[in-house]
Amino acid sequence: MKQLCYLFLLAGLLGCGTDTRNSAEQNGQPEWVQLFNGKDLSGWKIKIRGAELGDNYKNTFRVEDGMLTVSYDEYDSFNFEFGHLFYEKPFSHYRLRAEYRFIGDQVKGGPGWAFRNNGFMLHCQSPESMGLNQDFPICLEAQILGGSEEGERSTMNLCTPGSNVFIDGEFRTDHCMNSTSKTYRGDQWVEVEMIVLGDSVIHHLVEGDTVFTYTNMQMGGGAISGYDSLVYQEGKPMGSGYIAIQAESHPTQFRKIEILELKSE
């Protein structure tokens, strides 16, 4: 019965667009909340590989001109200092909406795959449970990518650091899987959304269109290092956790990150 309720809820969410915010406000239902206040990093926690929790190594995460910015202008070169900026509280059932763009050049030493690469890390382990030299949190990554001058490169893909999912009823252990989105090049702003319903289903949307769906999220696989083995539990359902954005060596800006919490049933 719960799964059936979720399907009805999703049908309404995917079809209502911005009207959902207006009707929610008018009916006294939960409203969209801005996770980024446009002024500073209040409400966020920083964890960069090799640095203690809260150490904003080389001022990687900052606010510039009202935009949350991942910057590398204080780096001489990148030495796998993968970073994550965690919102301070966990969530389970919600819609997360954001606008992002890639800017400038990738820092010297950044891996080729990290060119115009960032992500929204969903159902993350807590920042406090991250190992000092852990590269990526156990989570589900809604991967955002920018295209180069030639070739196709979708955005809002799925990567699975320490996690596995089902797609169309099939258990998948691939680390990264492509969405059906078009390629976004240059420094243009892109609006994306994630609809997250516990460990039941997650949808990725780009400019209002659903481009990826997966279900039955759980811990598993690999693609992470330096983690505390006590935090990792093979096969454990992933139904809640923290939200984080990445710093993987390419400058990125966010001008909106907002959430609408949903009822779990």
Rank of each mutant, 00 (worst) to 15 (best):
Y94C: 07
I243F: 08
L53V: 07
S126A: 14
G119V: 01
G112H: 06
Y94G: 05
R101D: 13
T155I: 08
R49V: 02
E258H: 11
D168H: 12
K58N: 10
S23R: 13
W113Q: 01
P127F: 12
L132F: 05
I138T: 05
V165T: 06
Y100H: 10
A98L: 14
I243H: 08
R95Y: 04
E234C: 01
D73K: 12
R95L: 15
T215P: 08
Y214G: 00
S179P: 08
L132P: 01
E74S: 12
L96I: 09
E149D: 12
R95H: 04
Y72W: 10
F61V: 09
Y6P: 01
I257R: 05
D55P: 00
L53P: 04
N117L: 03
C124D: 06
V211L: 08
V63P: 06
E152N: 13
T69S: 15
L7Y: 15
I103H: 10
L96C: 08
F61S: 02
R153G: 06
M130D: 01
D135I: 04
D73C: 07
Q26W: 15
C124I: 07
F120Y: 14
T69V: 13
G198F: 09
T210K: 13
C139D: 05
E258N: 06
V206W: 12
L140S: 04
Y72L: 07
K2A: 12
N178P: 05
L260E: 03
